[in-house]
Design a protein around this nucleic acid. Structure first.
Length: 594
RNA sequence: GGGGUCGUAGUUCAGUCGGUUUAGAACGCAUGCCUGUCACGCAUGAGGCCGCGAGUUCGAGUCUCGUCGACCCCGCCA
């Protein structure tokens, strides 16, 4: 008989009755009825009830064993008998009558209760993450993550991709997020950087002719955390393809993503091909480049109506080049005055000057802040334009920068979905956002800067760069969005050195600077680069959606906390003077505030 | 860097307008009882720098200021 187990804890059934078995696991519950003692034993695979007979040696052995200790139990499988079967347990038909008990790993008193609804503070959970990971939901989340990654690998290989590793110690790049730096021992004053993404390496692999690359790639960015953004490091399904158009990338990713979502969730997944929205349209209609399509409430432009009307405040905004935009909330007419006041307060917090309302109660005159100042004809026109049924409420925001009106209403729109529970349940609404602008104006310096990836191919190519206003140029740059979460960002790349020098020149980089900063890649492009493109879906976010979790740390085995600390391992930590000396580093701590 | 919310027993929380006993409850822990439980039940008990510091007050868990910490958000995230 095996030293530790003949069966795991999810395995035994009625058919095993009479067999002598050995099981090992954690003591999840003890129920001491005075004579008989029941112990629920848990391992990775399930739960098994152990029956400890009164007065036995095993009873004496079990008495002092605390919860979450690890034990090995040898005994005979018994049927539980009429009326004692537990239909909620897969092994509920049987129990193991303990003949011999071995304590393998005693547990101290637990710092927080396991197997209860999660109310333990996250700091405590993270400090004792090894205990936290024993709880059912988190244990399942991490296993789900493992299965999702395995499925992604299978699907990518079936699509003809090869998996590659790329360096973790690389060079710092000037664009993008803050880098994590690693000091060099051999080169005083110089640093490696951890990759923010294997962007340049995967493009180099395309130049090397590997045709289809993928990697479950760790990415490192020294930026602050959010609920859906792990600080420090995260994982992407990084992929790149040669000789492809945007449509080819979309079709491939749709097969993989639709497949994975369908495999691991019972929820309804958007059919392929996924809806495509141009960036400008998404911003106008939803006020966001990651619209949540689980509910309606589309934003409409009503500038033309107010431009003709005599409501001066809004007319003035439109005449000065601004816009008035609105959204219609069906069924909201019976909401209280406080509801709309709170909504306006929220809009103002987000930066709006106000949130005007026009409410159409069923069978009564219009109400709201615009009911009095607007003439009846204008109210009718607005009701018609927004197709507002009786009982609905219209919300308006006027802004000098037109898209800003949509952005603010977009935030109100999401807020309304929270307040009114508008989101469709059990659905994954996936969509592509396409045609991102290549450049934007830095609001502080007024300079033209890359708005996303500087390696993206501008639509119209060199011709567009030479002839168009840079701010009107679109890039072959796209995002994949699911339920209001940005899953993925990608592009058809710029593989032509001449176009790249020009693209960087518009953003203020000289040819020498481009050579210095992206030398490896630009040199490669001078020796026969194939047209190529790719994308990089976020693994953590995919698993978060599939596990129906609202916090990304619930799908990461050992996450850092919001302040980028690993409370379990104690990172970051101080190092010895010897280590600092070897790295030619001197610590200059910030001065404390007086 | 900024904003919001929260810090009371090992854990989760209650604690009224600043004043009534020794700051409570549940779970956990300890001891005892209980032979079919499955979140077993019952009884008894231990366990508190009310985050820390200062202030207001006759009196502070409660009010004010500071500080430290946690979570959420903004900035940031090509």
């Amino acid at each position: 008989m095996h030293q530790y187990r003949t069966h795991h804890c999810g395995e035994l059934r009625g058919s095993h009755v009479g067999q002598t078995v050995r099981v090992s696991g954690w003591v999840q519950h003890k129920r001491d009825l005075g004579g008989v003692l029941f112990v629920t034993l848990r391992d990775n695979y399930g739960l098994t009830q152990v029956l400890v007979p009164p007065g036995s040696a095993s009873h004496q052995a079990f008495e002092p064993i605390r919860l979450e200790s690890v034990v090995t139990v040898e005994g005979v499988v018994r049927h539980r008998g009429e009326g004692n079967v537990n239909p909620k347990m897969s092994t509920g038909e049987i129990e193991v009558e303990a003949a011999q008990v071995t304590l393998q790993g005693p547990a101290e008193v637990l710092p927080f209760p396991l197997h209860e609804d999660g109310t333990t503070p996250e700091a405590t959970r993270l400090t004792f993450r090894f205990l936290d990971l024993r709880t059912h939901k988190l244990h399942e989340n991490i296993l789900l993550r493992s299965r999702v990654i395995a499925s992604i690998r299978r699907r990518m290989i079936a699509e003809g991709f090869n998996e590659f590793q790329t360096p973790i110690l690389t060079s710092s790049s000037p664009e993008g997020a803050r880098d994590y730096l690693v000091p060099s021992r051999l080169y005083p004053g110089k640093f490696y950087a951890l990759p923010q993404a294997p962007q340049q390496f995967k493009q180099l692999l395309m130049v090397s002719g590997f045709d289809r690359y993928f990697q479950i790639a760790p990415c490192f960015r020294d930026e602050d955390a959010r609920a859906d953004r792990s600080p420090g490091e995260f994982y992407q399904l990084d992929l790149e393809m040669s000789f492809v158009t945007q449509d080819d990338v979309f079709a491939t990713v749709e097969r993989v993503i639709h497949g994975v979502f369908t495999e691991f969730s019972k929820a309804e997944v958007s059919p392929t091909p996924f809806v495509r929205l141009k960036f400008d349209d998404a911003m106008r209609r939803y006020g966001s480049d990651k619209p949540d399509l689980r509910f309606g409430l589309e934003i409409e432009d009503v500038s033309d109506i107010f431009a003709r009307g005599e409501f001066r405040a809004f007319r003035g905004v439109v005449e000065a080049g601004g816009a008035v935009r609105a959204l219609c909330v069906p069924g909201a007419a019976d909401k209280s005055r406080k509801f709309f006041d709170d909504l306006e307060a929220f809009a103002k917090e987000q930066g709006a000057k106000g949130l005007a309302t026009l409410i159409f109660p069923a069978g009564a005159d219009p109400k709201g802040t615009l009911a009095k100042p607007l003439p009846p004809a204008m109210k009718d026109e607005l009701q018609a334009k927004l197709q507002a049924p009786a009982g609905s409420a219209l919300l308006f925001i006027a802004e000098p920068v037109p898209v800003q009106a949509s952005v603010l209403l977009g935030k109100v729109r999401v807020r309304l979905a929270d307040l009114l529970d508008l989101r469709a349940k059990n659905v994954f609404k996936l969509c592509w956002i396409t045609d991102f602008p290549m450049y934007e104006k830095d609001p502080e310096t007024g300079q033209t800067i890359f708005s996303h990836n500087p390696f993206s191919m501008p639509q119209g190519g060199l011709e567009a760069l030479l002839t168009q206003d840079p701010l009107t140029i679109k890039a072959y740059q796209y995002d994949l969005v699911c339920n209001g979460v940005e899953l993925s960002s990608g592009a058809i790349r710029n593989h032509r050195p001449d176009i790249m020098y020009k693209a960087f020149a518009i953003a203020g980089y000289s040819q020498e600077e481009v050579d210095a900063r992206f030398g490896g890649m630009i040199r490669a492009f001078k020796f026969g680069a194939p047209p190529h493109g790719g994308i990089a879906p976020g693994i953590d976010r995919i698993v978060m959606l599939l596990a129906d979790e609202r916090n990304i740390r619930e799908v990461i085995a050992f996450p850092m906390n919001q302040n980028a600390q690993d409370l379990l391992m104690g990172a970051p930590c101080e190092v010895t003077q010897k280590q600092l000396d070897e790295l030619h580093l001197k610590i200059v701590l910030p001065e404390k505030k007086a």
